[in-house]
Design a protein around this nucleic acid. Structure first.
Lengths: 217, 217
DNA sequence: AACGTGTCAACTGTCGACAGTTGGCAGATT
DNA sequence: AATCTGCCAACTGTCGACAGTTGACACGTT
């Protein structure tokens, strides 16, 4: 019973996944260069597919290309963080408004479930895992039913993860985030688009501020 | 006196420019496939750089890739247009709000100049050129000073141009657009971010509706 | 006549090798 | 000793050729 498709994904596609993981986890540290021949040998593929993978990640903002020099993992400046969060805010506020208008009851249950699980984890003494934060925003995006906005948010969140890779969270911030999420769900439950957008704006503003302080500490 | 850089742009970069032009002008019609060997010969380059160019344009949304089948110029469905304009609205409303808050007097003068030129052209009996519409939105984006938002808007506008390539404008719509632009400039002049965002939202809603009617005519 | 099967050409995916450019190092000069 | 010049190794950019897959056509079967 071999898989129906002999190659589930092209070598370039596989290389994208592997490289993305290595960049996001910080295995390839920010500021470092990606050597084409070295990484190609390491992955056991030729330079062609690897180059395509590098270009793809560059288009996602996870690498920056310098002609005749190669690809670098970008390191964030405070200005970058601010500008990136302006983009994220524009996208996710719109998503929150659309979610408030278009959500189904199933969407609402899913959102409430994610919030409840976050609370449970937190009360059990465990930290609010970033995984659940991502899950919340993803669920909200599904409820918004705006595929292009969702796609762009996904890309922006990836870049945020990249900036965030070496930061630790502090409990007060986690608590505030969970409160924001709860309030957001209430606004969406009420179908109050304006409030949903406003709460999302305040939430992201807080997250951005926290990242900026962590960045400079 | 040869140029300082022997190659101003890599072959892949040049191929991107040529292909983008051909796609946006409809020289390569929507729905058609891009044959790698054929286009490579046509451009006088190898398949490697051309492949990179194709992948780049795909990341911009100007081509869609199908594994083992090739690259196609996407043809728009009404759902695509709506979803794309939801993205554009989220981005440009935020840009309009930022522009209202951050604009300098120089920015304001530039915006007013573009509007004035549009009026002049229109009164002279000439149609409102799409060039000036793009110039207006670009000037507003510069005034917003949010580089990531600006970059995304640029990509979205490109896709709108692609959808728009075979559509003609009608004078009533042109007139309404110029009125919207004027009202937008007034809001930005007043520093009224909320109004600027609202006007932009209404403007894009109108443009989207016009595109949808033109699409189905 | 409709359907399933085998073959084939065209195209994409991949590879290894060559050419051009960049940044740095060694040596010569002042 | 400091600076400038010329060379060099490493790397990216590019090319031509091979391998694997896809969709379609022709053929045979029911």
């Amino acid at each position: 019973m071999t898989p129906p498709t002999p190659l589930h994904l092209s070598l370039a596609g596989q290389a994208v996944d592997v490289l993305r993981e290595q960049v996001l986890t910080g295995e390839i540290p920010p500021g470092s260069r990606v050597n084409e021949v070295e990484v190609a040998q390491q992955l056991g593929i030729s330079r062609g597919p690897l180059r395509e993978a590098i270009r793809h990640l560059a288009s996602e903002g996870l690498l920056t290309l310098v002609p005749h020099r190669g690809a670098f993992v970008p390191d964030a400046t405070p200005e970058d963080v601010k500008a990136l969060f302006e983009l994220r805010t524009a996208l996710e506020c719109a998503a929150a408004e659309h979610a408030a208008s278009r959500r189904t009851d199933v969407d609402l249950v899913r959102l409430q479930d994610v919030c409840a699980e976050s609370r449970r984890n937190y009360r059990a003494g465990q930290p609010f895992p970033y995984r659940l934060d991502l899950a919340f925003h993803q669920t909200l995006l599904d409820a918004a039913r705006s595929p292009y906005i969702a796609e762009q948010v996904r890309l922006v969140q990836q870049r945020v993860v990249l900036l965030r890779s070496s930061l630790e969270d502090d409990p007060p911030h986690q608590h505030a985030s969970m409160d924001d999420h709860d309030e957001l769900v209430r606004a969406i439950a009420d179908g109050d688009a304006a409030k949903a957008g406003a709460v999302m704006r305040r939430h992201l503003s807080r997250v951005c501020a926290q990242m900026l302080t962590s960045l400079t500490h």
